[in-house]
Amino acid sequence: MLVMVLKRLGGVILTVWMVATLSFFLIRLAPGNPFANELHSLSPEEDAARRREYHLDESYSVQYGYWLWDLCRGDLGDSMKYRGKTVNALIAQTFPTSLALGSMAMLMALVVGMTTGVLAALRQNSPTDYALMAVAVFGISLPSFVFAMLGIVLFVFGARLFPLAGWESYRHVILPAMALSLPFAAKISRLTRVGMLEVLGEDFIRTAYAKGLAERHVVIKHALRGAMLPVISYLGPAFALILTGSLVIEKIFFLPGLGTIFVQAATNRDYNVVLGTVVVFSTLLCFFNFLVDLSYSLLDPRVKGSTGE
């Protein structure tokens, strides 16, 4: 067990390193100057001075070395566009926002998805089932920005219940989290339903009912595990998709999150910020996948090792 955990952690570090290295070269290859844009450009001396400051005049491997060394000490560097701000400071302000948004979206998705999925499975082929599954297909098909737009028109301009933009009180969280979570709620709903039906179709369930056990008991003790397995194996990719979906939601609701910083930095060629955000995101993602795998193996003792099917 411990060995597996250590192996997995090693995998995490390896993945993060791979991502970081790849991004390092990708962003440096992209043409464009981190210090200048259409509106103003620097004189050659100033440009040279800035480059020296950020080691940009050295070879790629030397720059990489500097960056890796700083990374090991926890220093993600300085922003090239926002002078005076360190990447650590920027991430410290924006990362909690994205994480809070993502976790609330995931929570909503799980709660809504699993309850509807269980409900639909228990009442298979009834109108409830079909209605819920129809809504679920809608949920999977509509992109989250469509939900966001509908939400804004209905609840911000229409009912004036929620604020339009910003990240201040809990009220600011509801609409973005809902918009972000709906596609995942739909998917989880379908997965739960499928998983549950699979378990419910087995013989021992019929035996349990025959023995006279209450539906609730049967569901909670046996069927639920069947429902949870596919959901848990979906959680990993879902989390990744929530992170990328948050880029769009952050843009629509102007949330000061990590995704927006990443997109801006990529456009501005702000190397350090790009690398910092990529490292943070991939660490988060890998770590989450690691946790999911752990819980999967806890849940289903038949599964062992890394390539569970």
Binding site: A100, H172, L224, M228, L299
Partner: peptide, 24 residues
């Protein structure tokens, strides 16, 4: 199984509350 579910949900909620940095 139910406990696992509730634990999962609670930890997500905890993460949310912990990291929510709304600037009220």
């Amino acid at each position: 199984n139910l406990y696992i579910l509730i634990a999962g949900g609670a930890s997500l909620l905890a993460i949310f509350l912990l990291f929510f940095n709304g600037s009220a």
